Structures are given as C-alpha cells and as structure tokens.
Simulated scan of single mutants.
Amino acid sequence: MSLTEGVVRILEEQAAQHGFAKVKTVWLEIGALSSVDPESMLFCFDAVAKGSPVAAEAKLEVIRLPGRAFCLGCGQDVVVENRFDPCPQCGGFGLRVTQGDEMRIKELEVE
C-alpha cells in the first residue's frame, strides 16, 4: 500500500511541476527481482488514487520486466527468475543483477 501511495504522490508532484490537471494512464515498470507484487499494486492503485484529484480516474498499466544478470563465472548475460538462482549456463553463483530489480514510472498519459 505504501508503494502505491508513493506512486500517487509522485503523480501529484509531477502535475504541480508540469502543469497538467489529470493523469489518464500510468505505465509502471516492475522488475521480477524487485520484491514488488504487480497484482498488489494493481489492487491497491484504485483505492489509493481515488483520494487524489490528479489520479482519481487514472488507469494503471504494469509492464513486467524479466530479471537479468551478468555471470562473472562464464561471462554470459542470463535471465534469472530469483535473485539467488545459479547461472543457468554454468551453475555458478557469481551473478551481478543488471535488470529486474527496479520499479519506476515509465510513462504518463495526461490532460
């Protein structure tokens, strides 16, 4: 719930800064390794946004990003489903996450 409140707060700040009155659609990127449940964000968004004059009628679209990591053992860029998975190529655990741990607003449709 607090993450969703933070998104709505950002929408309100951006409306004040850029001079738009309403947000119609929010595209939110959520990475597979971010520990954020996309379904929870979708569920909470309508309830939290109703209290905001800027976001009350906004629709939330979630873009799910896969987890990706660079394996220090074999030098491959690999897809991972969990942060502590071994490398699917060599089985090593020397993975450096390169994508999938983020949550960010990618795009807004405003009026």
Rank of each mutant, 00 (worst) to 15 (best):
M1S: 09
M1Y: 10
S2V: 11
T4Y: 00
G6Q: 05
V7S: 04
V8Q: 02
R9V: 06
R9Q: 09
R9K: 15
R9Y: 12
R9F: 09
L11I: 03
L11W: 02
L11Y: 02
E12F: 12
E12S: 12
E13I: 09
A15F: 04
A16F: 02
Q17K: 15
H18M: 06
F20W: 00
F20A: 05
F20S: 07
F20N: 06
A21P: 01
K22S: 07
T25G: 01
V26P: 07
V26S: 07
W27K: 07
E29D: 11
I30S: 08
I30E: 10
G31E: 05
G31P: 11
G31F: 10
L33V: 01
L33N: 04
L33K: 03
V36F: 14
V36N: 08
E39P: 00
E39F: 03
E39W: 03
S40R: 08
M41S: 01
L42T: 07
F43R: 12
F43Y: 10
F43E: 00
C44T: 04
A49S: 14
A49E: 06
A49D: 00
A49H: 11
A49R: 11
K50H: 04
K50T: 04
S52I: 07
S52F: 05
S52Q: 06
P53A: 13
V54A: 04
V54G: 03
A55W: 14
A55T: 13
A56S: 13
E57V: 05
A58I: 03
K59T: 10
L60V: 09
L60Y: 10
E61K: 13
I63G: 00
I63Q: 00
L65N: 12
P66I: 05
P66A: 08
P66M: 05
G67F: 06
G67Q: 05
R68F: 03
R68E: 14
R68Y: 05
A69Q: 15
A69W: 09
F70K: 14
C71V: 02
L72S: 15
L72Y: 12
G73K: 11
C74E: 07
C74M: 05
C74T: 09
G75L: 06
D77G: 13
D77I: 15
D77L: 15
D77P: 13
V78Y: 06
V79C: 03
V80D: 12
V80K: 12
V80M: 13
E81W: 02
N82V: 14
N82Y: 10
F84T: 09
D85T: 15
D85F: 14
D85K: 15
D85Y: 13
D85R: 15
P86H: 11
C87F: 12
P88S: 08
P88C: 07
P88A: 10
P88Y: 04
Q89N: 08
Q89G: 03
C90R: 01
C90A: 08
C90F: 00
G91Q: 06
G91E: 09
G92V: 01
G92L: 03
F93H: 14
L95Y: 10
L95M: 10
R96Y: 02
R96I: 08
R96K: 15
V97C: 11
T98F: 10
T98K: 15
T98N: 11
Q99G: 03
Q99A: 14
E102D: 13
E102R: 13
R104P: 02
K106C: 01
K106G: 01
L108Q: 10
E109V: 14
E109H: 06
V110C: 01
V110Y: 03
